[in-house]
Design a protein around this nucleic acid. Sequence first.
DNA 1: GAGGTGACTGCGA
DNA 2: CTCGCAGCCACCT
Length: 113
Amino acid sequence: MQKRQQDFFSDVYEVARLIPKGRVSSYGAIAKYLGVVSGARMVGYAMNAAHQQVPPVPAHRVVNRNGLLTGKHHFGAEDEMQKRLEMEGICVEKDQVVDFKKLFWDPSIDLAL
DNA sequence: GAGGTGACTGCGA
DNA sequence: CTCGCAGCCACCT
């Protein structure tokens, strides 16, 4: 089967939507959950298209391993991502999620059981 | 068909 | 602790 990345993308979108409100996740965590090793970049790339997917994927809840809003530029407005995170109740400072470690949400935690 | 880039991560100095 | 490099895979030119 020509397993198109579309499946991979769909999985990423699905997991991203599963992220609880007020929580954030990382590319590596999602990639790992999907069983993709070192696929963090692919996750990020998927997020690039997620912006066009419907329903829109909360890509703003997905940040890099450092909790840094690396992809804020892809939202069209840099403040958009931060604003959305704040709307979720997440404090963002200098493009970085406050208490990221505490707000960090791992798909395996909620989906593993 | 080949080369270059990228919303990442981990390890080494 | 901070900085730099290499690996990874799909998409774009």
